[in-house]
Design a protein around this nucleic acid. Sequence first.
RNA 1: GUCCCCAUCGUCUAGCCAGGUCCAGGACUCCACCCUUUCAAGGUGGCAACACGGGUUCGAAUCCCGUUGGGGACACCA
Length: 476
Amino acid sequence: MTETMRVRFAPSPTGFLHVGGARTAIYNDLLARGADGVFILRIEDTDRERSDEAMTRQIREALAWLGVEWNEGPHLQSERLARHRERVEELAAAGHAYRAFETPEELEALRRAAEAEGEKFRYRESASPLSSEEVERRRSSGAPYVVRFRMPVESVAIDDMVRGLVDYPPDAMDDFVLLRSDGSPTYHLSVVVDDIDMGVTHVLRGEDHLPNTPKHIGLFRAFAAAEPRFGHLPLILGPDRKRLSKRTGATSVEEFRAQGILPQALYNFLALLGWNPGDEREVMTRAELIEAFTAERLNDSPAVFDAEKLSWMNAQYLSSLPLEEVLHHLEPFLEPAGLAGVDRERLAVAVDLHRSRPRTLVELAESVAPYFADGIEWNRETCARFLAEEGLADDLEELARRYATVEPFAKEPLEELLRAQAEELGQKAGYLIHPLRMALTGVKAGPPVFDVVEVAGRELATSRLAAFAAWLRAGV
RNA sequence: GUCCCCAUCGUCUAGCCAGGUCCAGGACUCCACCCUUUCAAGGUGGCAACACGGGUUCGAAUCCCGUUGGGGACACCA
């Protein structure tokens, strides 16, 4: 019986959920689900100033929308302060921690001095540490102090799930702070205490945490706790090959959501940004991803975020997902497109007809709007060729008259009728087809016209044809 | 600056650990054609890469060293 895998995703609630964080969450999701493990959500909100409840909710909603499932939490790190302090006391009692009285100014001076020597300043307990009497004396005199970890002076090797063996030399670490002078625990302490208490077995996080790992390992050992397996994911870069930032485009899950990206598409796309199944599949459901996922195939070089490919992926889902699902996700985009109270059954038909074209839900809503609008606008530029066609207005009016009585109002008879009329006129069918589409939708391209006419319905089709004919005449 | 990580088409990547089957495969983008009196979707084809220099080897995209380039981290922030 092997132990249950327990992973955690531990964002700090300092804003919207970043796609980098989202991807980390996705890989943890994949890892846990594939092993029948437990996914713990923990909010690292120890930096009180920058955190608030709204942001925490924001993160939960973004994860839920994305389809990442957590089994435990969210735990709030801020609610575990007492536990964190208690653990520092244990550390101190066992000789793994000590008080240090340097002021921030003194530390700054030491740092500058080291730098002047071309060295990197690392705080280590001085060769002649303060006697316990001296510590007591300073403390009772009210001098502020921090509690530092007595980091063993030895190299630390990390067997990283994605990078293999990574070595840190002894002087890469220092006696980092555990408790600030106001008594609050630092990040390093909190994470390790929480990971131990929550029984975390695998830590899969961003590469920016790699240099912290030897420190964390030092703490795990001091606590005599089992070390989890670590894995460090390369960062996501922007088109400028720099860390993804708002300057080069959308970066948060909620922005993509607002742009009309489907959660399935974002999940799939992010999962493929730094991992692949080893075969040539790309469009994969979460279930398929879970089935195929192994940490061994995680990439170790950073990836540039390609918004273009995300768009393509989104289009794939837009046209292949069950219609009901698309409709469900389209709901929030209805109102902005003026489709708020529209008949859902007709909407479903129109969406199904159009959904293989747009790349986003925003575009999908817009493309379907003409079926429900009172009237539409025609653009003189795009209609130039129709405007120049003499007699076209008359012919379209004739078409409208015939469409007013055709039975049934369905695409086959609709097409036959139009072709017959074109033949009478000695014209090709395209002569009527193109202006017909323009008349109904206001755009020059779209689904097959007769489908469009059928979905539009007799009343809308005939009246819009008449209105377009009138507009053409007025334009000439 | 110091420490750590990384390096295949413009981008995401397969191949690298177990060297030959790779004049390097797939996908996005772009182009052409097929389908379609439109536009998508779909299909077919095309353009496009092993960063550089040394080794090791009969043979290197694959192993080793170096260079260059990119990224990350160096707090009483997380």
